[in-house]
Design a protein around this nucleic acid. Structure first.
Length: 699
RNA sequence: GGGCGGUUGGCGCAGUUGGUUAGCGCGCAGCAUUGACAUUGCUGAGGUCACAGGUUCGAGUCCUGUACCGCCCACCA
């Protein structure tokens, strides 16, 4: 049957993907490399950044899938032992929050179910969404080795996590400590600094009078009988243990060492001097609450102050506070305290104040700082290793300027709080501990745990270290740094040589795409509308210069048009080919040195160079221009004219047409795999491979 | 508060080490055409390259400053 006039991706894509899966060529051992292949002993490995099982994929995933698949498909055609490992991430807090939200719709919370039932419920969720995500990757055409699919919470992976934890523990790098940690009262867990999201909020700066104790009063010659502190968190005053001023501050020099009476509480607390106090802010005198503020906690340590916890894990005032405030929620307590201070005439003034409020990055609840017993991983030595790997050039970032934020962060890094009071995650391997590990502790092991570590597997020997890691910039420090030091620590080698930071996909208006804002675009919807190849080519075409992408559907339209052009040009070549009885050859040596061949060779050279430098957009543009304008508009039209004069030159032109078409299909295949494969399957050529996937890449 | 990036035709973007008429996609206008393709072909309109100075024989491209936009990082109560 004659191929349809217009290319219809719907009739092609599922069929072709099935063909690929059945061929087995996604796995590195599926086909024998040619004897003359210089790369046959080299491997090329990518680990897919495992998507969180919290929902469906977004455009960022689609973009990253295109990048990785282009790299993988090209290397596969070059004859490398190519492995792209897929998988998903259990995403501790994110998934737990998602499932809790589901429960809430049923009027339940996780405590109603209990730990075991709740975890069962999440496993049911992971079954659905994990598979959904893998299905979406397949729709995009990802040529991952699905037989090696991993999940960060599967049984084997659990072994890796345990082994890692015990290694650190035995080495003395893991310790338990009572520290002030970020705490989400809704999730009831600690959070790392990186898991906070700050939002700017209008609030107030309250100026509160702390009265001096009577004997202190007698000793001061001034007429002030109080010191004023400014705060944005009046409710924490219930836990104050001192008032601090800068030692150089002349205004307060004679007050240092004196005592004040903490309003509403009645506790006597000292006025101390500490360098952390900024003279210029507020009144230059700051209330010190070591239990609920990080700076204060450090001041407390320096001055040997008590820690009085007045906010508990659920965000309520504790029994350490005076009776009237006990059990109140933070907002209620704040209101009552302001009220009471006003009545006592201790509120000097209230100013409007805009400040950054930390919120839980998963559930958007205001995060509290509370003292809590947690597990920490010592970072200083590990961070040094991670710094060295990049400074020595063993790992390169592309674009290079992302090395700076990476190095800056590592330079100032604090110990990593790795315990979470969640139910969904890896349990800390020590008896009697209910805490789980930060989800990033397990994903830090991804490049080698997916290959079988801690067992010394064949895969590990063959495919580690991996080659390119492609990811979004916002998880450089959450994930990339931690993979790097983990790889060095456990494998003795950096886990990859290149970190590819891809652009962020924004809306056309320049907004961040997000579900909650309603600005997200579903790649699968686009695939249904335009076809996967159109989506892929549209994305690749826009991957220029490395800056963020304002997504516009017009590029996908272009992709669809291009696919159609390719389809019809191929139809033309094939229709005219049928005239010949003999199968046509694509032997390069028989080709004349004409203009189209010259242009083709330039295209090959340019595409190779651009792909080696991760210039995907440039490569896509080059291919587009060559195929459409040089090949279709000029060369094909010319062959029509020359054919009219007689059939003598017809055969030669056929070979040429077929050669250029086949080479173009090879070059385009990494970008638009479905349509190129479909056409390849129909081509009347000798020595056809089972799939275009394993054809020889043009050099 | 610190760091990074952006500002080029209606929209989305390219412009390598400074050098003849600043490119691409989408859109727009006119013309063409049933024989690969109307998801087409040809032709064309449309930009004082954010602003102000400076370096240079010559700057979208280098330097200084300004404005606006975006992102990341940061314990200023």
């Amino acid at each position: 049957m004659e191929p349809a006039k217009a290319y219809d991706p719907k009739t092609v894509e599922d069929k072709i993907y099935k063909l690929w899966e059945e061929s087995g060529f996604f796995a590195p051992e599926a086909h024998q490399p040619r004897a003359d292949n210089p790369n046959k002993n080299k491997s090329f490995t990518i680990v897919l950044p495992p998507p969180n099982i919290t929902g469906e994929l977004h455009m960022g995933h689609a973009l990253n899938t295109v990048i990785q698949d282009v790299l993988i498909r090209k290397k596969r055609m070059e004859g490398f032992k190519t492995l792209w490992i897929p998988g998903t991430d259990h995403a501790g807090i994110a998934t737990q929050a998602k499932v809790e939200k589901e429960l809430r719709k049923e009027g339940l919370n996780r405590f109603d179910l209990g730990r075991e039932k709740f975890i069962e419920r999440i496993w049911a969720w992971q079954e659905i969404y994990g598979n959904k995500i893998l299905g979406q990757l397949k729709k995009l055409g990802a040529s991952c080795d699905w037989s090696r699919t991993r999940f960060t919470l599967d049984k084997e992976y659990e072994k890796a996590v345990q082994a890692a934890f015990l290694h650190y523990y035995k080495k003395g790098l893991i310790y338990q400590g009572e520290r002030v940690v970020n705490w989400c009262p809704r999730c009831a867990t600690s959070l790392s600094d990186l898991e906070l999201e700050y939002t700017e909020e209008k609030s107030h700066l309250w100026y509160i009078k702390y009265l001096l104790r009577k004997d202190a009063l007698r000793q001061t010659q001034g007429d002030d009988n109080f010191i004023i502190v400014a705060t944005t968190r009046p409710e924490t005053m219930l836990g104050d243990v001192a008032v601090a001023v800068n030692p150089k501050d002349e205004r307060y020099k004679n007050l240092i060492g004196k005592k004040v009476i903490l309003p509403l509480v009645g506790r006597e607390i000292p006025i101390i001097a500490d360098r952390a106090v900024d003279q210029k802010f507020g009144t230059g005198a700051v209330k010190v609450t070591p239990a609920h503020d990080l700076t204060d906690s450090e001041i407390g340590l320096r001055h040997n102050l008590k820690i009085i916890q007045v906010i508990d894990e659920r965000g309520r005032i504790t029994k350490e506070a005076p009776l009237p405030y006990q059990g109140l929620k933070i907002a209620e307590a704040r209101e009552k305290i302001i009220d009471d201070l006003t009545k006592l005439n201790l509120l000097e003034k209230t100013e409007d104040y805009i400040h950054q409020v930390p919120k839980c990055y998963r559930c958007n609840t205001v995060v509290e700082l509370i003292p809590s017993k947690q597990w920490f991983l010592k970072m200083s030595d590990l961070a040094k290793q991670a710094v060295k790997a990049v400074k020595s050039g063993k790992i390169k970032f592309s674009p290079k300027n992302f090395e700076k934020p990476y190095l800056d962060w590592l330079k100032n890094v604090r110990d990593w709080c790795i315990s979470r009071q969640l139910w969904w995650g890896h349990k800390i391997p020590l008896d009697g501990v209910d805490d789980v590990l930060d989800t990033w502790f397990s994903s830090a092991l991804w490049p080698f745990a997916t290959l079988g570590w801690p067992e010394n597997t064949k895969d590990l020997k063959t495919f580690y270290p991996t080659d390119v890691l492609s990811t979004a910039r916002d998880i450089i420090n959450l994930w990339v740094t931690r993979m790097i030091f983990s790889g060095i620590e456990f494998m003795g080698k950096a886990p990859f040589h290149t970190v590819l930071i891809h652009p962020t996909v924004l809306t056309k208006e320049g907004q961040r795409m997000s579900k909650s804002l309603g600005t997200g675009i579903d790649p699968v919807g686009l695939i249904e509308k335009y076809g996967a190849d159109a989506v892929r080519f549209g994305i690749a075409y826009q991957l220029l210069g490395g800056q963020d992408i304002k997504f516009s559907e017009e590029n996908i339209v272009m992709g669809r048009k291009f696919c159609n052009k390719l389809w019809n040009a191929s139809r033309f070549v094939m229709l005219t080919s049928d005239v010949n009885d003999e199968p046509l050859t694509s032997d390069v040596n028989e080709l004349p040195k004409c203009q189209i061949i010259q242009q083709l060779n330039q295209t090959i050279e340019s595409v190779n160079k651009n792909l080696e430098n991760y210039q995907f957009g440039e490569a896509a543009h080059t291919l587009y221009d060559f195929f459409w304008h040089d090949f279709c508009d000029k060369f094909i039209e010319e062959t029509k004219n020359s054919a009219q004069g007689g059939s003598a030159s017809g055969g030669k032109n056929q070979k040429l047409l077929l050669h250029v078409l086949l080479t173009s299909l090879k070059l385009l295949h990494p970008f638009i795999p479905f349509i190129t494969e479909e056409i390849y399957q129909q081509l009347p050529i000798k020595d056809k491979k089972q799939s275009l996937m394993i054809e020889k890449w043009p050099l």
